[in-house]
Amino acid sequence: MNMIVSDVAMGVEMADQVKIKVNDVDVFYGAKQALFGVELDIKANQVTSLIGPSGCGKSTFLKCLNRMNDTVDIARIQGLITLDGVNVYDSKIDVVELRARVGMVFQKPNPFPKSIYENIAYGARIHGLASTKADLDAIVASSLEKAGLFEEVKDRLHEPGTSLSGGQQQRLCIARAIAVSPEVILMDEPCSALDPIATAKVEELIDELKQNYTIVIVTHSMQQAARVSQYTAFFHLGTLVEYGETKKIFTSPTDKRTEDYITGRIG
């Protein structure tokens, strides 16, 4: 009895823990401002979904979290983003390490033109995570296992990653991200190129992954946001309109724009 109580207490505690804190963030592409004063706390070991009409800045926001915007020449960011209390944009932060801690899965599956094995081993190799071949094999196997892909591909690890189906490729990309043991996984519309069955598999996977990872997912589908996420943020024209528990956002939104969007009146 006691044990169960403490378990629940721990769950609650973890749910309350803030993993990423976003403070008054503005993003500019050249002279054009794409995000306006975004304030948001992302909870550890939860799935947070970002919804909103196209072009409202969801991808831009996501890319701030692992500094992928650094690769865009004209992008400029103001404000404060902290990961476990440490400023992500501090000049002392090593971007390469940051991106190993905050992994990313893209809209279109983008496996490398290498074998399935090499796709997973890639991150482990560049970060020197495995010292022996056996270590590497173990990392590959466990990453594929966690991504729910191992059974499907275990006999064809040395075939090209691009020979998999779209849904399998996307799970391969998730496995590839998992292989470097990140703490946070960012997913930018990971199911938009997939059929319903593959989508269901990925959603199931996201639900499992939240035990070990903090997940932020951009989605166009409100059903998907409702199904997989505990927290939802609604963006509109570069501003964060409303943020809260998914249940609350979908049943009783406080902002008129949120209500219009989830009932299909804007978008």
Binding site: N66, M68, T71, V95, V96, E97, L98, R99, A100, G103, M104, V105, F106, K108, N110, P111, F112, P113, K114, Y122, G123, I126, H127, C173, R176, A177, V180
Partner: peptide, 23 residues
């Protein structure tokens, strides 16, 4: 998208070039 995939895993520019783009 291949470069992004590599950068997203924490690879540097030259690692990305050598291991993903050039192959």
């Amino acid at each position: 998208s291949l470069r992004d995939g590599s950068y997203g895993l924490g690879a540097t520019k030259s690692e990305t070039m050598k291991r993903v783009v050039l192959p």
